[in-house]
Simulated scan of single mutants.
Amino acid sequence: MATDQQLTVDQVIERMRRLADGLPPGDGVGVFNGMYLTVTELVRQRLAATYFDAPAATARLDAVFAGRWLAAVDAVAAGRRPTACWRPLFELRGHPGIHPLQFALAGMNAHIEHDLPLSVVDLCRELGREPAQVEADYLRINALLAQVEDRVRDELLPGPEQLDLADPLLHVIGVWSVDRARDAAWASALALWELRELPLVGPAFAAALDGSVGMVSRALLTPLNGRGRLTA
């Protein structure tokens, strides 16, 4: 799906805010969008604070990356199907047996493990750079994402008195981590970069990535009942 190549970070934040205003409480799409808005606002703050080696390139990556999420939102609003990695979140966004943290992690899984490597390749093509030239700032974003993920887990995860080690909710959310996802995304970006001139293999790899990431998102959205127990 094409991304909006003209978006700026400020425009991305404005669009996410408008999206948040139009969604009802508990909507799974809104849960992820709210978390992603927090990440993007944090990136914008760091862009102005010399946190990144190449702030202009990082801002461009952030906008291209976010454009893929907004393209999925626009596709659904227009009655089209989003890419496979995003379908579970949109299809299950109103399911009453899914915990909000599951929505947040499923959205992060789709966006990081699929959209991010494609966005890195898009950026490198646009700027005429090799992936190694953007890797340092890519890694700096890891710390920001981990910070927000920890905050979201603390805010949304039930207290220890409500869960035990065998609780299915802990099992579902324990299979995914932002650090492993970012490592996998970087490996995928390197593979896509090397395959970019192969007209059959590159698109086949990207399509397979889309489908496999969607399967993981669907697993993360395994319905639970109100006590965190698996629905019969």
Rank of each mutant, 00 (worst) to 15 (best):
D154R: 12
W186G: 01
R151A: 11
D137V: 11
W186S: 06
A110I: 02
V64D: 04
A110F: 07
E135W: 00
R68L: 04
E126M: 03
G107C: 00
G128W: 03
D74L: 02
L165M: 08
P160Y: 10
A146E: 13
D167H: 14
A84S: 10
I173Q: 01
F65G: 01
A189L: 07
L144K: 12
I112T: 12
A77K: 14
R87I: 01
W193M: 09
A106I: 03
V134H: 00
A110G: 12
D74V: 02
G159P: 10
V120I: 15
D179H: 15
A84C: 03
A66T: 08
S177V: 06
W86R: 02
D179K: 11
H95C: 05
A207F: 02
G128C: 06
R196D: 00
G107P: 02
L139E: 13
N109V: 12
A146Y: 10
Q162S: 15
E130P: 00
Q102G: 05
R93N: 09
G67D: 05
A166Q: 11
A204H: 06
D115I: 04
S119N: 00
R81A: 12
L144C: 06
A208H: 08
A106Q: 04
H95N: 11
A146C: 11
V152N: 01
I112L: 11
A207I: 05
L92V: 06
V172Q: 15
D62E: 07
L92R: 15
L89R: 09
E135P: 00
L101Q: 04
F90N: 07
A206E: 05
L105V: 10
D164L: 07
D179A: 13
V64A: 02
